[in-house]
Design a protein around this nucleic acid. Sequence first.
DNA 1: TTCATTTTTTAGACCTGTCTAAAAATTTGT
DNA 2: ACAAATTTTTAGACAGGTCTAAAAAATGAA
Lengths: 227, 227
Amino acid sequence: MENTPLSHTEQNYIKAIFKVQELTRAEAVATNDIAERLQTQPATVTDMIKRLAEKKIVTYKKYYGVRLTAKGEKIALDIIRKHRLWEVFLVSKLHFKWDEVHVIAEQLEHIHSDELIARLDDFLGHPKFDPHGDAIPDKHGNMSHSNAVPLNTMGKKQSGVFCGVANHEDRFLQYLDSLDLHLGATIYIESVNAYDASCKVKINNTHSEFFSPQIASCILVKPLYGK
Amino acid sequence: MENTPLSHTEQNYIKAIFKVQELTRAEAVATNDIAERLQTQPATVTDMIKRLAEKKIVTYKKYYGVRLTAKGEKIALDIIRKHRLWEVFLVSKLHFKWDEVHVIAEQLEHIHSDELIARLDDFLGHPKFDPHGDAIPDKHGNMSHSNAVPLNTMGKKQSGVFCGVANHEDRFLQYLDSLDLHLGATIYIESVNAYDASCKVKINNTHSEFFSPQIASCILVKPLYGK
DNA sequence: TTCATTTTTTAGACCTGTCTAAAAATTTGT
DNA sequence: ACAAATTTTTAGACAGGTCTAAAAAATGAA
């Protein structure tokens, strides 16, 4: 029951397993997928998994895969909480752009201090979402989930409020910036191409843009009804 | 000329060498002193010193000692800059007390991002001193030095503004807090005991306190003339 | 179902940072 | 100035985290 603080590396593995688990929605997470995500070798992953299993952070069955335990999930959510709170800090206080904060937050998320995070959360006004619209878990690991849907699931003449992205690549975020499309913007669907589902939208009632289905699927909106 | 980013550990050694160098004001720094400061074994220090010497961060002569090169000193000052800026952040934005920030800043100082530090510095309004009154080096490594002197070097009926401490132990800082003695306070020396040099002072013209010479020597003040 | 392919694990090695024990150099006391 | 004490370095070991190469298990295709 002793609690050696987790190393930077262990935390990265836990986060990776959490992400893969979330993405694949499968019973167990494959060694190769973790290795891919961490840009490391499968053999290395196997070693680390064994250590994590000993610490009861994951359950592990050889040749089958790995899953986070409740304890492991809590740790992952803690790290994600820190990461996202720091991102809010970087954007709203230090005026970084949303495509610049990830690498810095990756470092900040490993700082050990519950008190620090509690106070940072206070300082930021208890934000519920990070600069990309991702929900910030509270200290118990609970997060509010928005009723956001990808833009491409909405029909012609409907509007929604831009509230998240399903693609966090810098280039994508920069592209949205170049369109003056920021979180909170209202997006109205002027038309949808019946053949390939690309769409023409009006942003904040000021300017129109075309989105391929691929792009539209990465833009998450909260649908607006009425009007 | 390649620049592998320095590890957390290497940075800690550099900082320790800098501190010992500053303290002992000697030609070269002894292995044992570094080991003492880092609470590690001399043998370990020798190993690390050899690595640092290869990277041209220190000059090293066996059985003689070690010194930071100009490059090493710049690195040390960078780390100290980060440490102190983060301390300002923790105290002035997150409302930590001055005795609570050291351990957290020890972690934060290792975050790699020049842009982050530049923006943090902006955000904090380019502070010149940290919450303990220690000067914050600018990005070139220059720091303003206050004309502060230990309280015990001042005479009867003189006053000064409290602007730093020569002892950073939590308990000492908490003791000063308990006296309502914070940076910026005016200290007036009512009397000095001729035998042991202990003194009676008046703080902010509101309350009197007694200081042993030992305590007085850890209280740094900027002398006030005239009045 | 059985052989080929893919995935995963094991084995053995390396590097960093640490330790202890012992050897070497330096300093010190008389 | 020399023996004793101290300081510093070397040698050898170990743990965490990584790698490559090879073995083992699982999967899939004919």
